[in-house]
Design a protein around this nucleic acid. Structure first.
Lengths: 219, 219
DNA sequence: CGGTAGATTGATGAGAGTCAAGGGGAGTGG
DNA sequence: CCACTCCCCTTGACTCTCATCAATCTACCG
């Protein structure tokens, strides 16, 4: 536990660096309604943040990959829950000090620090903002084909081989991220296969035969 | 022009406070692809940020009301354009100094300052993040009815009278924000009227007869 | 009194949701 | 080593919502 205190402009804010934590697939890291006093850095694996509605529907807000930092929220409670998609390792940070219940009540949470994380907090927040906007754009798009193309390209960008995407999440996860049903996700992938855009190496491994064609549907 | 220089953790960043600017309805404040060296504070009126696709479709990312600060982006260029919805007054701030092309290259853009804005920049970014996530949630919802209900409640919260919403934007704007068509927006409002949820005082003024019924469809 | 832009309403069709049934692969146990 | 099982994925048939195309209506302004 390393206590860090920084000048937050409108006051002093501090947080502690927690231990490295391991999570099994589908294990919850924090839940909807939990106190938003922690934020998370992903070291390995993939984490999903999601929102469950009272009628059982689920919407996935984002998938977080190694290097991502997420979980800072404006309110007192987390409006989203976070769960491991596959085996995952994270570092958990905990807000401390005068501004309780989240980083934003007292002003700016951090500035300069030696361990490499805090001075990038604002950058991470901005990256999360850009991704949320991008996600909203994706969901606003009309067709399932466009959404799926955007999704594949998103993961293509994270892959060592841009043309071979390995999906760590289930069809249900993809559906909840794209605002579709499992059946539609499956059918759309089949259609893409028929049209020669992709090859289904296995259910979770997809070869992007025509990146350019996919990019054309994506704006 | 007031030059402000602040310690940005990983370096010094400065920005200038620009003049108060007036915009007529539909006038552009900045365009998609413009250099992202400015951010905006809304003083009066409503601003929309939107993204246009090559095929002419338009998606509205957000409506910004007085007090909102928007336009900081991670990249070098604005990925969205900003336009006045109605007559609007804003203050434009411009990034200066070592970290060119946006606030996020050199670290944290601002900390302490006397004029009330800078120390809240992080808070504004976080608010924008929360709103983008909320928007994504809205777009992920299935039915037009739910989307419309969420939209009305969003503006109800901004109104002096919670039960009387005055819409400053056109049906087309609403449609582009909700990922629907103008016709569906219109039909959905008519349906709500039929069901006694709302009254259409005029095209742009809506009385919310049953806030509770609307809230029930909104989660 | 037209003229125009925005809003509403109608008819129709395409695309995604729903319900239901059928693969397929990984792991388990005999 | 094979059979069984479970879960995930795929496919099929049908329904329903929303997009599309088109016409009408309304308010505002010259």
């Amino acid at each position: 536990m390393n206590l860090t205190t920084v000048n937050a402009g409108a006051g002093w804010v501090s947080f502690t660096t927690g231990p490295v934590l391991y999570y099994a697939p589908d294990q919850e890291i924090y839940g909807q309604g939990d106190t938003a006093d922690t934020f998370i850095k992903v070291m390995a694996g993939v984490i999903r943040t999601c929102h469950c509605l009272h009628d059982g529907r689920r919407q996935i807000d984002a998938f977080h990959v190694p290097g991502d930092v997420f979980g800072f929220e404006f309110g007192i409670e987390h409006s989203l829950s976070a769960e491991a998609v596959n085996e995952a390792t994270v570092i958990s940070y905990r807000w401390r000090g005068p501004s309780r219940g989240g980083p934003c009540r007292g002003g700016l949470p951090s500035i300069a620090n030696a361990d490499g994380l805090p001075e990038r907090l604002f950058g991470h927040a901005m990256r999360n903002l850009a991704r949320a906007q991008e996600h909203a754009r994706l969901l606003g798009r009309s067709s399932a084909l466009e959404k799926m193309a955007a999704f594949l390209l998103e993961w293509s960008a994270h892959s060592p081989d841009r043309k071979l995407v390995t999906l760590v999440m289930s069809r249900q996860d993809i559906a909840d991220y794209l605002g579709l049903t499992v059946e539609t996700v499956s059918r759309t992938l089949s259609q893409m296969k028929q049209e020669g855009l992709i090859q289904l190496v296995s259910a979770r491994q997809i070869r992007l035969t025509s990146l350019t064609a996919l990019r054309e549907m994506n704006d």
